[in-house]
Design a protein around this nucleic acid. Sequence first.
DNA 1: CTAATTAATTAGTATCCACTAAATTGATTT
DNA 2: AAATCAATTTAGTGGATACTAATTAATTAG
Lengths: 112, 112
Amino acid sequence: MAQTPSVDTVMRTLADPTRRAVFERVFHSKEITVVDLTRGSGVTQGAISQHLKTLKQAGLVIERPEGRNVYYRAQPEGLEPLADWMDHYGVPSLPAKKRYRARIVPDFRKSR
Amino acid sequence: MAQTPSVDTVMRTLADPTRRAVFERVFHSKEITVVDLTRGSGVTQGAISQHLKTLKQAGLVIERPEGRNVYYRAQPEGLEPLADWMDHYGVPSLPAKKRYRARIVPDFRKSR
DNA sequence: CTAATTAATTAGTATCCACTAAATTGATTT
DNA sequence: AAATCAATTTAGTGGATACTAATTAATTAG
């Protein structure tokens, strides 16, 4: 990746449920191949390849070719643009979350 | 909102750059009307209205009608599903100073 | 009152993109 | 060598959706 992908790229990449599921699955496996990812995905192997390409361009996965297999790994740093965006427009980071929620609720959330 | 929107809803809502820009602008203004949002947006008033409807359904904004105006406010809690997702699949390598700042000044939005 | 303003909605269009099926490439096996 | 396997790429299609222009509704101004 020549340059850090934009929030836009990351958002749009993860917005598709199938592709997000692929990312999650790659994330949860140390390494995984396309055929393994295809199994139980509900789409064809070509589709998975396309999604992986998109994920790769977004900096969310990397590949390690070995023989005729290509092993994919998640690249969590690829989520940084999204995290930065969240920091700016969004939700405080983990430790502050509880306080934050306690402060917000009472007004227009219907209490019952 | 009957129910908390899913990650999917939030992601897809924020994936569109125009709509995300609308959200950011609403977020940074205390309250803002549709005409004000339309100004300089590059799209028509109808388009802005549509985006606001989508944002509202995603739990990201709320409206306050007053006379013939409708004032919109951001609803940062709407980002929680996204934050929760990030927590799971998230970002260990987020720059430490950013997290630090977020922790000590969680309410940096209000101080200006 | 009429005219103007604000906003939402509608219908129609164009673009985008996720997907499949098929072809292709490259690597291993027999 | 041919056959098989893993993966990518291509062309084409269908569906989703962002947008515009126009209409509608409601409120305020002159």
